[in-house]
Computed example of a mutant assay.
Amino acid sequence: MKIMKTIEKIPGGLMLVPLFLGAIIHTLAPKSGEYFGSFTNGLMTGTVPILAVWFFCMGAGINIKATGTVLRKSGTLVITKIAVAWVVAMVASMFIPDGGIQTGFFAGFSVLAIIACMDMTNGGLYASIMQQYGSKEEAGAFVLMSLESGPLVTMLILGSTGIAAFQPHAFVGAVLPFLVGFVLGNLDKDFREFFSKATHTMIPFFGFALGNSIDLTVIAKTGLAGILLGLLVIVITGIPLMLADKFIGGGNGTAGLAASSTAGAAVANPMIIATMKPEFMDIAQSATALCAASVIVTSILVPILTAYWSQYMSKKKQGPVGHNDSHKVTA
């Protein structure tokens, strides 16, 4: 049976399929983990420790000796993505109540959901797209995108915009596993090779654990709002990213468009934030559902849009067919 290959055909499948499996279990039998206890309960409810290991391995996989071109490109995309999410948070906080929108088409929308969807790029998706439509250096620009992974950037945006207040030690706690992994991975390449292999393996586990905290009726209520949020992520983050890629990163906008997705790991952020700040717990489930929808939408549309843009830029660079030849004949 080709179960693995089938799952990988689904956008964000390694994250989303286990997530929805866990959500089904939680919806139909919410006390399952408590009933079985022991390791089964740990697997179903251990989102935070599983993610802690994943963040450590992500940090270990980053090579600080990346070329200057790679660092410039990835740094430009990462900073732009975070800056756009920060501006959006400032604007959204003026119109969206603390408890999120409760009724109407935008029911479930909250500042937490919007930030979580916009402040993280799907690094794996970006790398695979740029390997086909970009240069080797552009494809390698995903190295710094791991810095967006986890709740730290979301916490920084929430804190700096005054939406939530976090104690300094909470910020340290959020980034410490990543930093320790980063240091070890760069002190010894064997550590980097060993731990980086686990980043892919851990994805289904935290997806399943996260799903076991979600009631599927909440996902049903978000409806088309999740699709709309995915489209907004592409438009609102994509345009600044394309401009930054062109005028700062030295590209033609293709890399910027390829980075306008929502990372699969972003689905975990609302619940992680809620565990640290219980006032967000009421909106965490709907925010998680919206993020899951945004991951699917952006995973489908971003590769298609990037392919069209890349082809358009290639034709534009070549100029009209026959133009150069006719010019030579006239001369």
Rank of each mutant, 00 (worst) to 15 (best):
L243M: 15
W54V: 12
Q131L: 14
P270L: 02
I62R: 01
F178E: 01
P168A: 06
I300Q: 00
M1I: 08
A141L: 11
G13I: 15
A170Q: 15
G12R: 01
K317P: 03
G140A: 06
I3Q: 05
T45Y: 05
T80L: 04
G249F: 11
Q132H: 07
V153A: 02
D325N: 05
S149L: 15
S135D: 13
C291T: 15
F247W: 15
T262N: 13
C291I: 04
T69E: 13
I82V: 13
V321F: 05
I129C: 01
A331G: 10
G46W: 03
E8Y: 08
Y133H: 11
K136F: 10
G124D: 00
S32F: 09
S286F: 03
M276C: 13
I248L: 12
L216A: 14
S314P: 05
T275N: 08
E138T: 14
G319I: 12
S326V: 13
H200G: 13
G59Y: 14
A258I: 01
I101P: 00
I239R: 15
G322N: 09
S146V: 15
G33P: 00
G256S: 13
M130V: 03
E137H: 10
G134L: 07
A85D: 03
M281E: 09
F178Y: 07
S110Y: 12
G264L: 08
G124V: 01
A274C: 06
V48G: 06
K136Y: 04
A170C: 07
W54R: 06
I10R: 00
A266E: 02
P168R: 03
M90E: 09
S286C: 04
V70A: 02
I273F: 03
L77I: 15
F280H: 01
P303Q: 14
F178K: 14
T298I: 01
K31W: 02
Q311S: 12
F142S: 15
A92E: 04
I219Y: 11
F205Y: 12
T199C: 05
L232V: 15
E137S: 04
V87N: 13
L243P: 01
G37R: 13
L232I: 14
D245P: 14
I79F: 12
G42V: 09
P151A: 07
T262H: 03
G238W: 00
V84N: 02
M145T: 02
Y133M: 05
G104Y: 09
M271Y: 10
Y308V: 13
A116S: 15
M276W: 07
H26R: 12
Q318Y: 07
F106E: 08
L71H: 04
L301R: 00
M202C: 11
T45K: 09
V78Y: 06
F194R: 15
F20T: 11
G46E: 06
A225Y: 00
A127M: 10
G251H: 11
L51H: 14
M145K: 02
S135Y: 05
G253S: 07
A268M: 08
L147R: 05
A259V: 07
L28I: 05
K73S: 09
A165C: 07
L144A: 10
F55C: 10
N212P: 07
F195I: 08
